[in-house]
């Protein structure tokens, strides 16, 4: 049972073109290690430099979003750089294109503003995304943002089609947020 269960799990992942899928608490150290494996895998497969950089960038921004914004987080005040947070992150390829999927639990009240930002970005064409990026980088980040609030726009900029996202309310307080990006 042990081997057959896990073998089935592995086969299903392989059939979906998954390079790796991580589920659990993620730290900046894990981000670095997964990113390193991803670079090496893409390099061995002779992926072109631009595609590698785009996939890597989407992966880093998504992983940092989990670390910073997942509701399931362990962080001590003043130790934000050592924060670990729970989520899922998957990188794979489908019909010749790479994809990166991330997901994490978040508070329902925080989901609404995020959804509005995602929808705004989804409706922009590449020139609009670029203009939005430049506007955000010139101006100060959102007060509630731990990063530069540029991450989502950077992700959209590296994507080859509009980003897909979804929310699933899991109880009165929490929602599961998920995003899939094709590069």
């Amino acid at each position: 049972m042990l081997a057959s269960d896990h073998h089935r799990m592995k086969l299903e992942s392989n059939q979906q073109g998954i390079i790796f899928s991580f589920n659990g608490f993620i730290s900046e150290g894990i981000l670095f290690a997964l990113g390193d494996a991803l670079k090496k895998k893409m390099s061995q497969d002779d992926t072109d430099v631009c595609t590698m950089k785009r996939v890597f960038s989407v992966f880093v921004e998504q992983a940092q979003n989990i670390i910073r914004y997942s509701a399931e987080t362990l962080a001590k005040a003043g130790m934000e750089a050592n924060r670990i947070s729970s989520g899922v992150i998957t990188v794979g390829s489908e019909a010749g294109r790479f994809f990166v999927v991330c997901g994490n639990v978040m508070r329902r009240e925080e989901a609404l503003p995020l959804q509005a930002r995602l929808e705004k970005i989804r409706n922009l064409d590449p020139a609009g995304i670029k203009a939005f990026y430049l506007d955000r980088i010139r101006n100060e980040p959102d007060p509630d943002s731990l990063g530069a609030s540029l991450g989502l726009i950077e992700i959209a900029r590296r994507a080859s089609e509009p980003i897909q996202y979804d929310f699933l309310d899991i109880d009165e307080l929490n929602t599961f947020y998920c995003m899939k990006v094709f590069i």
């Binding site: 530069a148 540029l150 950077e154």
Partner: peptide, 12 residues
């Protein structure tokens, strides 16, 4: 060769 968005802000 590469920088993330937090670093892009600092470069700006």
């Amino acid at each position: 060769d590469y920088f993330n968005t937090s670093s892009a802000k600092a470069l700006m």
